[in-house]
């Protein structure tokens, strides 16, 4: 039951450090080389994402099964929101990392990826129009972590432990929503403008879910066609969704 200000500063502190791909980029890209760079980066980011989730106040108090379930559901949405945040001040570019920046045309070499790049660029422009603030961004990311639809809408807890974990998760979601409302209230807007902003920001979450679903299909197709070798943590996270 942390004060909102403290809650928000804890999730700000949980932010992962900047990550570099650290590969010799050979341009022009081939389908295989671009997919390899993208998956290598994703694999590194996933390790940091797990440390990030553990620092969200209350996350480690959920049952281990729920922690696993939530991360397996949302990982690509979280990666995509992070990508959009890094790209928000660079119109027309996707800043995967400081040493791995792509424009939409470069997506041409990977079958089916330009469509996803375009969606990411469009959603990034929307965040640019809205002038997304860092405090809002960290709240949205935590909301994505806790917003598994399977979890909230389809599973009914069977045991006392499951029920307790679900209740904790809902309380945690309350805290994150309160924190987002609080962050918006600091912007000097009228009450009506604050309500509209909350609506616009949260509606973007459905676009992020949609892009994540498209991205997941794309990655599993690339894996099936042996364009890229998916291994380790990324494989585990992908398999959970296919």
């Amino acid at each position: 039951h942390l004060h909102l200000e403290e809650f928000i500063s804890r999730i700000m502190e949980a932010e992962p450090p900047e990550i570099y791909l650290m590969e010799d980029m050979k341009k022009p890209f081939t389908e295989a080389s671009m997919m390899m760079s993208l998956t290598n980066l994703a694999d590194k980011e996933l390790v940091l994402m797990i440390s990030w989730a553990k620092k969200i106040p209350g996350f480690l108090e959920l049952s281990l099964a729920d922690q696993i379930h939530l991360l397996k559901c949302c990982w690509l949405e979280i990666l995509m929101l992070g990508l959009m945040w890094r790209s928000v001040d660079h119109p027309g570019k996707l800043i995967f990392s400081p040493d791995f920046k792509l424009n939409r045309e470069e997506g041409q070499c990977v079958e089916g990826i330009m469509e996803i790049f375009d969606m990411l660029l469009a959603a990034t422009s929307r965040f640019r129009e809205l002038k997304l603030r860092r405090e809002e961004y960290v709240c949205l990311k935590a909301m994505i972590l806790l917003n598994s639809s399977e979890y909230l809408c389809t599973s009914s807890p069977q045991t006392a432990e499951e029920l307790e974990s679900r209740n904790k998760m809902l309380r945690l979601l309350d805290s994150v929503i309160d924190a987002l409302v609080w962050a918006i209230s600091k912007l000097g807007l009228t009450t009506q403008q604050q309500t509209l902003r909350l609506g616009h920001l949260t509606m973007l979450l459905s676009h992020i879910r949609h892009m994540s679903n498209k991205g997941m299909d794309h990655l599993s197709t690339m894996k099936r066609k042996n364009v890229v070798l998916v291994y380790d943590l990324l494989l585990e996270m992908l398999d959970a969704n296919t």
Binding site: I50, S51, K54, L64, K72, E236
Partner: peptide, 13 residues
């Protein structure tokens, strides 16, 4: 043990 489980259950340094 999966890698995700392993990363979740290791104590932060």
């Amino acid at each position: 043990h999966t890698k995700l489980l392993q990363l979740l259950t290791t104590k932060p340094e």
